[in-house]
């Protein structure tokens, strides 16, 4: 059977990601040459500053970018399956708005150090989604439309509070900080931050991996899924929790990153011509490649860093426009 072709797709994807990884390590305000990178890999003697930049800034940042792209790509593909809609993203359940609110609260009330900010953003994202799940469970049918409505309610509530906070914020420092957070950036990533969110990221991925076949079945109608013996409501809740852990752990340290969760699964399905968990992983690789290129550009096209979501939006929106004119959008 055609398993081989699938393996080649993964190998090529990982090779491109590897090249992008090297690119990301070398570019930036402090240039690290490929020779220096090679020396570090081989454990040879290099300049102390280069070593410091590599281990404490560049490497954690690049790893975070890869995790971010992978996580958003995988979570996006899971959401598109659960919601049986190719335009679904993790934002539907309010994770981004919740995290945004958490960040805004930290900026205004705790004049937040970046750890406090990350922590409240993470909690905000989780809390928003759990509230939406709770609200759904109060509904009679507990189906997809109730989930979407609950997500809209939570998102609007969070946006409302954010607007209020912005209105009372000090425009010079606080308002600017909230706005910048919502544009996303990998600039502040350090090894400590990476290690702080990693356990939650991994926990989320493990949940999704364990339930991978059952999640596959969720892409069918609820009745069809149940007739195949899947406890649709329970599996869906856990799948949402797993993807929320992944997304919240990313955006809590990077701020909002747009379009990756929508675009990557799409490209993944077009290339693989299938829709299974491996396609979800493959979408993660695609997400990582797009994000790593975007982040390298963010660091290099102007003298100061450009927020990441500006670039992902400029890549993502034209891609969507391209899909509108050329493709069957039901992929």
């Amino acid at each position: 059977m055609k398993e081989k072709k699938g393996i080649y797709q993964f190998i090529i994807g990982l090779m491109i990601l590897g090249i992008a990884f090297i690119l990301s390590i070398t570019v930036g305000r402090y240039h690290i040459s490929i020779e220096d990178f090679g020396k570090i890999l081989l454990g040879r003697q290099v300049d102390a500053t280069i070593k410091m930049v590599f281990f404490h800034l560049r490497l954690p940042r690049t790893i975070m970018v890869i995790l971010g792209g992978m996580g958003l790509g995988i979570a996006g593909s899971i959401y598109q399956m659960i919601f049986k809609n190719p335009l679904a993203t993790p934002d539907i359940m309010g994770v981004s708005s919740g995290a945004n609110l958490g960040a805004a609260i930290a900026i205004i009330f705790f004049t937040g150090g970046s750890f406090v900010l990350g922590f409240t953003a993470f909690l905000g994202g989780l809390l928003a989604v759990f509230t939406a799940i709770g609200l759904t469970n109060l509904s009679r049918d507990k189906g997809i439309s109730s989930i979407v409505l609950a997500g809209i309610v939570i998102t609007s509530m969070a946006q409302g509070i954010i607007m209020m906070l912005k209105y009372f914020a000090d425009p010079e420092r606080q308002l600017a900080a909230i706005e910048f957070w919502s544009m996303g950036s990998f600039a502040g990533i350090t090894l400590d931050k990476l290690l702080a969110v990693l356990p939650f990221f991994i926990l989320g991925i493990i949940i999704l991996f364990l339930l991978r076949w059952q999640i596959n079945i969720l892409s069918l109608s609820d009745d069809e899924g149940r007739s195949l013996g899947v406890n649709v409501t329970v599996i869906r809740t856990f799948a949402i929790i797993g993807s929320t852990l992944v997304v919240a752990s990313i955006v809590s340290v990077t701020g909002l990153i747009t379009f990756i969760g929508l675009m990557a699964p799409h490209i993944g399905r077009i290339i693989r011509k299938k829709n299974d968990f491996n396609t979800g992983i493959f979408s993660g690789i695609i997400g990582a490649i797009i994000l790593i290129i975007a982040d390298s550009l963010a660091r290099s096209i102007s003298s100061s860093e450009i927020p990441i979501s500006i670039l992902t939006t400029f890549i993502g929106a034209p891609y969507l426009a391209y899909l509108i004119v050329t493709q069957d959008r039901r992929l």
């Binding site: 059977m1 598109q80 399956m81 049986k84 190719p86 364990l210 339930l211 991978r212 076949w213 059952q214 596959n216 079945i217 892409s219 069918l220 109608s221 009745d223 069809e224 007739s227 195949l228 013996g229 899947v230 599996i235 399905r269 077009i270 693989r272 011509k273 299938k274 829709n275 299974d276 968990f277 039901r330 992929l331």
Partner: peptide
């Protein structure tokens, strides 16, 4: 059901394979 609800690219064999779900443990894969 009256109408199938598959909306994404899926291999025919994978569609049939969904029928094995009642015989799988919640964490396992065909």
């Amino acid at each position: 059901p009256q109408r199938n609800s598959i909306i994404y690219n899926t291999l025919v064999l994978d569609v049939v394979l969904m029928g094995i779900t009642p015989y799988l443990n919640i964490f396992s894969y065909p």
